[in-house]
């Protein structure tokens, strides 16, 4: 379940990509967890996330934000494009004292700053050592930068190519194309704002 770890991209592009997760530990503190995850999403929504989701239902591109918040359970996600948003959410979560585990994915040094500004401490880290094995089978890096934003691999390389073609042909804007991809990532960890920029750059080549 490392669905937000292996996101690929340049430092500049990843600087606009932060995913926050909130979840209970099964068998330890999961009793009555749903209202706490709902509270997490209510806090996240105050800071204008580009996506929110809950695995059992879907994300804000397949359902309304209100529906996603209402159906929060098991594990919930929120995606932001600025460090300041992450810091503010962490500060509010610290005050809310939900007792649920919270994980932040993003460039280490930038997330470190958010953690420190929020007065929290680093607990445990997960480092990606990249892709091993028969890497010659992989699609080009520019496709992977979009595809790896859905860590469960539900967004196909061919759908990304197809959307880039749509942008090139003038049939879709980059934002519209990103919104075609987003619903397929049920968890809601996909960053449509970043995807739109990446696909616009591909289409411009």
């Amino acid at each position: 379940m490392t669905h937000t770890l292996h996101r690929r991209g340049t430092r500049e592009s990843l600087s606009e990509d932060y995913v926050m997760l909130c979840l209970p530990a099964v068998g330890v503190n999961d009793e009555g967890h749903a209202p706490k995850l709902k509270k997490f999403l209510e806090i996240a929504v105050r800071y204008d996330p580009v996506n929110i989701g809950t695995i059992k239902l879907g994300n804000m591109y397949s359902h309304s934000k209100e529906e996603v918040v209402k159906e929060a359970q098991a594990v919930v996600h929120a995606v932001f494009v600025k460090q300041e948003q992450v810091t503010d959410v962490l500060k509010d979560l610290e005050k809310a004292d939900l007792g649920m585990s919270v994980v932040v994915s993003g460039i280490f040094e930038k997330v470190d700053e958010c953690i420190e500004k929020a007065g929290l401490k680093h607990h445990t880290a997960n480092f990606s050592l990249g892709i091993w094995g028969k890497t010659e089978k992989l699609p080009p890096d520019e496709i992977l930068e979009v595809a790896t934003m859905c860590g469960h691999a539900m967004i196909s390389a061919n759908l990304i190519r197809s959307m880039v073609d749509e942008i090139k042909a003038g049939r879709k804007t980059p934002d519209e194309a990103a919104k075609v991809l987003a619903p397929n990532c049920a968890c809601g960890v996909f960053n449509p704002a970043r995807a739109a920029k990446l696909m616009a750059a591909m289409a411009a080549k």
Partner: peptide, 15 residues
């Protein structure tokens, strides 16, 4: 080599 980005648990869980 490892990615510049990754995941961090920020220690808010209880107990």
């Amino acid at each position: 080599p490892y990615y510049i980005n990754g995941k961090q648990n920020v220690g808010l869980g209880r107990p």
